[in-house]
């Protein structure tokens, strides 16, 4: 899996990654901790600590919780829910 990833970045470099990316991109992470929370989750799933769909289920319910009765004004942001999901899943997996 790791080697597969490296191959992909090689493909990107081969085509001159500096020229193409971010044409339509906004900054994908607004704050540094979002980036870290995101990569911790991906990294742990790649290590096999959990299956991605397990994380995804947690995330879906966390987002739903946050949206509650007023979905236009969720009680927390997307990455806050992301972090909550990761904490909750880790609690189950590490104990």
């Amino acid at each position: 899996m790791k080697e597969e990833r490296i191959a992909k970045s090689e493909i990107a470099e081969m085509n001159g990654s500096a020229a193409l990316p971010r044409k339509s991109g906004e900054m994908v992470f607004h704050d540094a901790w979002e980036r870290k929370s995101f990569t911790l989750a991906v990294s742990l799933s790649e290590q096999g600590l959990f299956e991605w769909h397990e994380f995804q289920s947690e995330l879906i319910s966390a987002i739903k919780d946050a949206e509650g009765e007023d979905p236009d004004h969720p009680s927390r942001g997307y990455f806050e829910s992301w972090q909550v999901s990761l904490e909750s899943l880790l609690e189950k997996k590490l104990d």
Binding site: S9, I11, A12, E13, P21, K23, S24, R35, T39
Partner: peptide, 15 residues
Amino acid sequence: IEKLADIYENDLGPM
């Protein structure tokens, strides 16, 4: 962690 972040931000982008 750094490597993954880099891959997702830069190499697996819309291009």
